[in-house]
């Protein structure tokens, strides 16, 4: 099966999915899949482990939620504002973080994210512990009522596809080629005359903006923006999703996000409901020990071996 057929089959599945599965669940998967793809752009294609990516997800959610609640704007404007805010925070944080490497980069991003977490906890517009509840979905372009879950689903799907294609193009662009070179051998990239920090920064901002897009969309889906979205626990979860699915692969984070969200939903209604985090921990350990390249990575290896 060639790639085009594969992509069209996936698209057909995505379009037909709400006939079988609950749309809100699917939208949750799509939001997290976009978030994980944005994160993977940094980890998988530049080799930067950001440990504070929740802040971009959450900032998108808070800004969009706040604007939708308090001003009569349409959802696409609310989302754009959320994306803009995340990109701006990404620019500032990125400037500070890209000068550091390896574990120090991870620590700086974590520290900056914690700083922002406590800001959101105290700031009056976020509703503190309660979060922003009852965020209206509004009318898309002032015309289409998004309060219907099925309509909302196709809107979210369109956003996901746009974000996914942007990431795909970024990876397969002249810029993406330089990113791969930096990931492969940073010193050599420098010695060829590339100012690598500028490239890392641009990748960081793109990643932050797309994480913000995921957050803004999520706020509209659940009509809620809360501290959960900016908590470091969320930053950890996106690492898990990406590693489970396969970092550095284009479909890995999507599959990883689908698996984790699906597992959480499944467990929440079963007898293991109180042990979700234990099960997740086991999944993570098994994944890291048994298949390092993640689900997609291992699949690719299998295909390469047998065909």
């Amino acid at each position: 099966m060639n790639n085009k057929t594969l992509n069209f089959s996936i698209l057909a599945l995505a379009l037909a999915a709400p006939l079988v599965l609950y749309p809100v669940f699917l939208m949750k998967v799509l939001c997290f899949a976009l978030f994980a793809c944005a994160f993977n752009l940094l980890l998988g294609f530049v080799g930067l482990l950001s440990f504070g990516h929740a802040i971009f997800l959450g900032s998108g959610a808070y800004i969009t939620g706040h604007l939708m609640l308090n001003y009569s704007i349409t959802p696409e404007v609310g989302i754009l504002a959320g994306v803009g805010a995340s990109a701006l925070i990404g620019l500032i944080y990125g400037k500070l973080a890209v000068k550091r490497e390896g574990i120090y980069f991870a620590m700086v991003t974590l520290a900056l994210a914690q700083l922002m977490f406590f800001f959101y906890l105290q700031a009056p517009f976020t509703g503190g512990e309660d979060g922003l509840q009852g965020v209206p979905r509004g009318f898309l372009f002032g015309l289409i009522d998004l309060s219907d879950n099925l309509t909302m689903y196709y809107f979210v799907l369109a956003i996901f596809i746009a974000g996914f294609l942007l990431i795909y193009r970024t990876i397969h662009s002249p810029f993406g080629q330089v990113l791969k070179a930096i990931r492969e051998n940073e010193a050599r990239a420098i010695s060829l005359g590339y100012k690598v920090n500028n490239y890392k920064l641009q990748a960081f901002v793109i990643s932050a903006a797309l994480a913000g897009l995921a957050g803004s969309t999520k706020a509209l889906v659940f009509q809620l923006a809360s501290l959960n979205d900016v908590h470091w626990f969320m930053s950890g979860e996106v690492v898990l999703m990406t590693l489970l699915g396969g970092m550095g692969t284009i479909w890995g984070p999507v599959l990883g996000a689908g698996t984790i969200v699906g597992l959480q939903n499944f467990l929440a209604s079963g007898p293991l409901a109180n042990y979700i985090h234990v099960v997740m921990g086991v999944v993570f350990v098994v994944c890291v020990l048994a298949f390092r390249q993640g689900l997609v990575g291992e699949l690719q290896k299998l295909v390469r071996k047998n065909f």
Binding site: R169, T170, H172, S173, P174, F175, G176, Q177, V178, A181, A189, L192, G193, Y194, N198, Y199, Q202, I206
Partner: peptide, 24 residues
């Protein structure tokens, strides 16, 4: 690709994330 990365440095499109890599 190894050699192209070096050649690319003299071009002005290394920050273009919206352009197809086919250009390279």
């Amino acid at each position: 690709e190894n050699v192209r990365v070096a050649l690319q440095q003299k071009r002005n499109d290394s920050f273009f994330f919206w352009r197809s890599e086919k250009k390279l």
